[in-house]
Amino acid sequence: MSAITLEIDGNKVQVTDGMTVLEAADNAGIFIPTLCHHDKLEPFGGCRLCIVEVEERGWTKMVVSCVYLAAEGLVVRTRSDKVDRIRKTILELLLAHAPDAEVLKELAQEYGADKDRFEKDPSFCIHCGLCVRYCAEVKQKFAVGFVDRGIRKEISFIPEIAARECNACKECFPLCPTSYLQAAFVLTESLAFPAQQKKSE
């Protein structure tokens, strides 16, 4: 593991090879907003909110910092007009799905995002994949997964596994940025194993 030096917002930062730009910024105490990153999980690149501007050999480009590896001599700007503008639009799109999520509301204020810019499509899930990945990677229970694709993609509990595992765990609940996960669980519970629900009350 060799050390590499890069520049983030004007600060020289030293990190080990193989770290992502997001981790490097985190190490240096520079905050980059993200909704789908979790220390215990593999990088996912789902929410795109951690987008930053990087400059390498005179070229600048926009990259998603949670899946972009830090490299020697990289110049990173975590707040520029362009970055802010993109984050604002991403937030507005996410708010169309989950207009009342606290995390989104706070970020919207910071970036001046208008929650009413796009027509509401309250699916409440923003596809950050935290629950799905936490259950698969950390707990290895695979009780919740994605189903369908594109605009119809959503999370879905596997009733047989959820009935067995979830009541004792529920570690994914606090991870959800919109609380939709809890709703999905209660729905599965009441449809597939309501008897257990009564017992636990």
């Binding site: 259950c135 695979f142 009780a143 997964g145 994605f146 189903v147 694709r149 879905s156 596997i158 596994i161």
Partner: peptide, 21 residues
């Protein structure tokens, strides 16, 4: 699907994702 999941040692969630995809 549950049978396939058991024999192939692939989680049902993954099979369901593929089946709906």
């Amino acid at each position: 699907l549950i049978r396939v999941s058991e024999k192939l040692e692939v989680p049902v969630a993954r099979i369901q994702h593929i089946a709906t995809f």
